[in-house]
Design a protein around this nucleic acid. Structure first.
Lengths: 306, 306
DNA sequence: TTAATTTACGTGTATCGTAAGGATA
DNA sequence: TATCCTTACGATACACGTAAATTAA
């Protein structure tokens, strides 16, 4: 048995069973991959793949069992390479971070600045996506970590660290009547058109639940995946905004007033998630440490430590 | 990187860093292994082994980290082979069981009889040893399972299933004065010379503790690793025997009287231990099932189910 | 037909074995 | 000196690429 054979099998699975795309990804010709897969099946004595004529369409029962072990084996082999790279002290490489717009725009900048100072040779990649994608990417080793608030329970492949907790704030134009109320209630919010996040993003599910539990129906006129859009429409007078409180910036958002709403909604926990059993390189650990440091030392009262 | 290179590394570690013995075990010449190790180190870019001139003497720091991952990778590769073998329905192979004399002599016979009936093609090996050896053997894949009462907490490599609980019995010649007492106390036992297991075996540690806690000192005139020896000396009139209660056989031990002592000593748990993460072949699972079935259906009142 | 996979065959690379060269106990 | 490990070199095996055959969409 050969590592490349196992690699071919896993790449094939990750390529929807297309041998030619697997070959591309492995920098080989199709026939080479075809042969590798054939040899693997021959050595094991049973087919691993379901075939429709010449096309591969899926895994046999044995194939599914083998897939698990193959992934573990390849992961361990990859860990060996990572350990060796780290040992040579090469503070070089790529750091792939998955996150939502909110993270990329409002939390990460100081972290990335500090990280780049420590490891100028490491290429930083920010992969922006929705929570489902973030989990998928972390699980399939497309990114090194994902910074997630939702969907984490889904994947047993992932481990995660709780980083901070946040809640929501109301943002309005300076002359809005809601600003007269010190602690607005849910039913106060329902009187006005609301602009907030789309479902699946940034705690939108819990947002909905809070109203539903109170028997209320908010008048959500617009949903967006990122806070900048919400702010723009609030400024435009379309309605009131309800955003994650770390997205309000006292200094730059001078045309918007902010009111804390943490008495109305549950606290959300943001976590860094990464593949279980995967070795974490030194610079990756540094990134995590910096991230935690930044959110914990932040004195803007935007997050709560865990 | 190549599986054989990793295999060479692990075999080397398991051979006290002798390249020549590693080569023998791998059915290669020394130079081939030497080259494999060299290529592995070259690819990783740092030495894995500490050298004294040309001799290898140990692992570098990196080597130790790599060893962990290499073992995981090889284990997964081996699991793939096992899964494939099991899939071909080959009810053939070897089943290597580690156990003490007590197990081999008094518990296993009916299990082995039943197993052999189901899988006549499987070669059964009983590796008899002391509890420390049993744990070591299971941990290094020298045996497939070990049946252990002690020492299990030691190794985090192992998983185990609780099988049954047992306690001790007194055995004496038919005319012994102790037989007049219905429930002998510890101090009663101290009046007579005692024959029991050597330290490390069959609950001897807890045996000692029970007396120590009561401030008593038993008069142990002879210790043996197996019950047959103890019985022989009791028959010889050397003293009273204290043995595991599953070792007394009502039918064959007619010249010895037995008194239950479970009111005096803690219950011991016997477990089947096997390597974590290792795939269990179908016939191995059958063996475990048969073992559990036998001890749970046993009506001789010798064990307690868990 | 087009796109994709398998099979056949020749080439090049990489690993093994032989044998010689050093190093250690 | 005897044992053990490394290096050099030649042979062999094996995986890859080219190209033709086969099959599905």
């Amino acid at each position: 048995m050969d590592i490349r054979q196992l690699q071919a099998m896993i790449t094939l699975i990750n390529s929807e069973f297309s041998v030619s795309r697997t070959a591309e990804k492995m920098f080989l010709v199709q026939s080479a991959v075809s042969q590798q897969l054939k040899r693997l099946e021959q050595e094991l004595g049973s087919p691993l793949f379901v075939r429709k004529g010449k096309r591969l369409t899926g895994l046999t029962e044995l194939g599914q069992q083998v897939e698990q072990q193959a992934r573990e084996s390849l992961n361990a082999v990859n860990n060996i390479k990572l350990l060796a790279l780290d040992h040579i002290q090469l503070a070089q490489g790529i750091l792939r971070i998955g996150c939502t717009h909110t993270q990329a725009r409002y939390i990460l900048p100081p972290v990335i600045k500090a990280f780049n100072k420590s490891y100028p040779e490491v290429e930083l990649q920010i992969h922006q996506g929705n929570p489902q994608q973030l989990v998928e990417w972390a699980g399939n080793d497309i990114v090194d970590f994902s910074i997630c608030t939702e969907e984490l329970a889904e994947s047993s492949k992932l481990e995660s660290i709780a980083c901070y907790q946040w809640n929501r704030s109301l943002i309005t134009l300076p002359d809005h009547p809601l600003l007269q109320i010190k602690k607005p209630a849910l039913k106060d919010l329902c009187k006005y058109p609301i602009i907030t996040y789309v479902v699946g993003f940034t705690g939108r599910q819990h947002f909905n639940n809070s109203f539903a539990k109170a028997g209320l129906k908010p008048n959500t006129v617009l949903s967006a995946a990122d806070t900048d859009i919400i702010k723009a429409y609030v400024l435009d007078g379309l309605g009131i905004g309800i955003i994650a409180n770390m997205s309000y910036n006292r200094k730059s958002d001078t045309k918007l007033k902010q009111v804390d709403l943490s008495h109305l909604f549950p606290w959300e926990t943001t976590r860094i998630a990464y593949l279980k059993n995967k070795v974490i390189r030194r610079y990756q650990q540094t990134f995590i440490d910096l991230f935690l440091q930044v959110v914990r030392q932040d004195d803007s009262n935007r997050f709560k430590a865990c």
